[in-house]
Design a protein around this nucleic acid. Sequence first.
DNA 1: GCTTTTTACTTTCGGATTGCAAGTGATTAT
DNA 2: ATAATCACTTGCAATCCGAAAGTAAAAAGC
Lengths: 91, 91
Amino acid sequence: MLVVRDLVLGGSRFKDFARSPESIPTNILADRLQRLRAAEVIRQIPAADGTRRLAYELTEKGAALRPVLLALRDWGLAWESGTEARLGSRV
Amino acid sequence: MLVVRDLVLGGSRFKDFARSPESIPTNILADRLQRLRAAEVIRQIPAADGTRRLAYELTEKGAALRPVLLALRDWGLAWESGTEARLGSRV
DNA sequence: GCTTTTTACTTTCGGATTGCAAGTGATTAT
DNA sequence: ATAATCACTTGCAATCCGAAAGTAAAAAGC
């Protein structure tokens, strides 16, 4: 879910996910990326910066998780102190 | 999350959760009930059937998770075959 | 062109978490 | 009075996770 959130926020590279404030271990991150790809929530694409490196983007199925993230964000903002709103507007 | 879903659906007793199709082991269930109580998502109440047994209900904070469940249900219905809609109408 | 750094992982390993099975004491049904 | 149900707890093997280190390929710096 945190990987999906990062993708919605614009991050798209392995290093971006690894540097997120939750600081996921890289072995777990690699496993999650693999599983999310198997579930067709994300897909691999070539990096946008001209290099031969990889990046990830949400599939249509993955983008459809946005309302779930927004509902969770709203709940956190309303009920859990310390919740930060990095996700933008509704729907 | 599955405990919260069961509570939204009407189940309220330990046995109800334990008998859910996901069949959670009872030691994990006991742990989750304790944690959800600590997080003030659920609270203990006396059972409704006159016996001296226990039941659980959602707090206001817990009930506020309903939109999250609905968003997840909608996603499952749209993208995951085999998703069953046991949750009722919107909001 | 050669060295250093970055990237995207994999491997290793101790500790935490989980699933399964069985057990327990109190309450309730027969 | 006896049996069954309820709401857990305990014990143990297997799985999963986090932290750290290692690696191969690509990119950056000089």
